[in-house]
Design a protein around this nucleic acid. Structure first.
Length: 391
DNA sequence: TCTGGGGTCCTAGGACCC
DNA sequence: TCTGGGGTCCTAGGACCC
């Protein structure tokens, strides 16, 4: 029996969680390199182009790329990330188009995260340009004044380290922190407490909640729910009937600003993958050699990724997207984990045999999951009893 | 002229075992 | 002959996020 202690009887302390989001990150890194473009509509996207004398205009782009990031000046034309570049060119033909340089973005990503960790070490990585930070130790009583001071300190540290601006939201949990880091962009600080929910959060569209995407938002709207407040007022059982047991209850709790997820400071990847969209749709037979070369290259890249990160994988997956945008996947689980390009290629080839190829192919991808570290138990001799049975 | 590339998580059905 | 239920692993697809 454990002795009864204060931890068992006291209510949990309110948490203080920050979400820090870099402002128009990729585009802002490009502006560090090309300060003469400051104030202009600039979009980042597409494949590496040949460097020319002048900056290419969006109107001159030909291809299948999408916008990765747009400056706020470009967004004023109605373009946004994820939009096809050809479509964006209609809205903002004179915008400058720069191809993405992930090497540079990763460099600035490391810089800003290191700067934050100097101040607050409990950091959860959420991709290249955003993080959650547990301010618990720095702000034990969750005071709004202290939160604002820490947020200012974080912003200043990030700017000193990178020359870039970021926006910060501070709230009692990750869901609300994420929501409010977006409320005053760029370079904003937004502090939200549970008491602010009705006035500051409930009027917002439900779509702003991280986890409500285009499909769920459209379905909610069909059902007469647009704002977060309307979602909070909905009957949980009714939501479950329309969205499923788990997602229905999650929707309701999210609208009430209820989120207990911890800040996760370390995690292991579950899968690694490589994929490519061809510049033109390839015919399974007529373009066989081109397809085959791409396939091999993807497997080699993936094997290199695995080796660099120190993983093997037991399940190999193949992904195809046809010219009509239909996507199919096939998985193949091996008896032993593998990491070599030829082994991956062989297993993915088995997957490919199970897909009827009746249309041109737009995209080809290879994935490795069920990851383990090579020294886990791969090299260990088989269990003697088992070995005896099979010899 | 639509729609990138890298991920995570969830669901649902079937196989197989106890 | 059929009936029961739980647990795990595998597979395929889809929503969502950065």
């Amino acid at each position: 029996m454990k002795p009864p202690g204060p931890a068992r009887t006291m209510p949990p302390l309110p948490r203080s969680i920050a979400h820090l989001d870099m402002d128009a990150f990729f585009a802002s890194v490009e502006l560090l390199r090309y300060p003469q473009l400051r104030g202009q509509a600039v979009v980042v996207g597409g494949r590496r182009a040949t460097a020319g004398e002048t900056f290419p205009r969006l109107a001159d782009y030909v291809g299948r790329g999408v916008i990765t990031t747009a400056t706020y000046e470009a967004r004023a034309f109605g373009v946004h990330s994820g939009m096809g570049l050809m479509k964006a060119a209609q809205l903002a033909p004179d915008a400058i188009l720069l191809s993405a340089d992930f090497e540079a973005y990763r460099h600035y990503s490391r810089l800003f995260k290191a700067a934050v960790r100097q101040i607050a070490p409990e950091v959860e990585d959420r991709g290249i340009d955003e993080i959650y930070i547990d301010l618990g130790a720095l702000n034990p009583d969750g005071s709004a004044d202290a939160a604002r001071r820490i947020a200012q300190e974080l912003q200043q540290a990030v700017t000193e380290a990178t020359g870039l601006s970021c926006s910060v939201g501070v709230a009692p949990n990750k869901l609300l922190a994420k929501l409010c880091s977006d409320l005053d962009k760029p370079a904003g600080i937004t502090i939200v407490t549970a008491a602010d929910l009705p006035t500051r959060i409930w009027p917002l569209p439900a779509r702003r909640i991280n986890g409500i995407g285009p499909k769920a938002a459209a379905r909610l709207e069909q059902l007469g729910i647009v704002s977060i407040g309307e979602l909070a007022a909905a009957d949980p059982a009714w939501l479950q009937a329309h969205f499923g047991e788990r997602y229905g209850i999650w929707l309701h709790r999210a609208a009430l600003g209820d989120d207990e997820r911890p800040v996760v400071t370390r995690s292991e990847p579950k899968s690694l993958s490589r994929e490519t969209t061809f510049e033109r749709d390839l015919h399974p037979r007529a373009d066989k050699s081109e397809l085959s070369a791409s396939f091999t290259r993807l497997c080699e890249q993936l094997a290199a990724d695995l080796s660099r990160k120190g993983y093997l994988g037991k399940t190999i997956g193949l992904k195809l997207r046809f010219d009509n945008f239909r996507t199919v996947t096939r998985d193949h689980t091996l008896a032993q984990p593998v990491g070599g390009a030829a082994q991956i290629r062989r297993a993915a080839g088995e997957c490919l045999k199970r897909i009827p190829l009746e249309r041109r192919i737009r995209l080809l991808g290879v994935r490795v999951s069920s990851l383990c570290r090579p020294d886990d138990d791969a090299e260990r001799p088989p269990d003697p009893v088992q070995a005896e049975l099979f010899t």
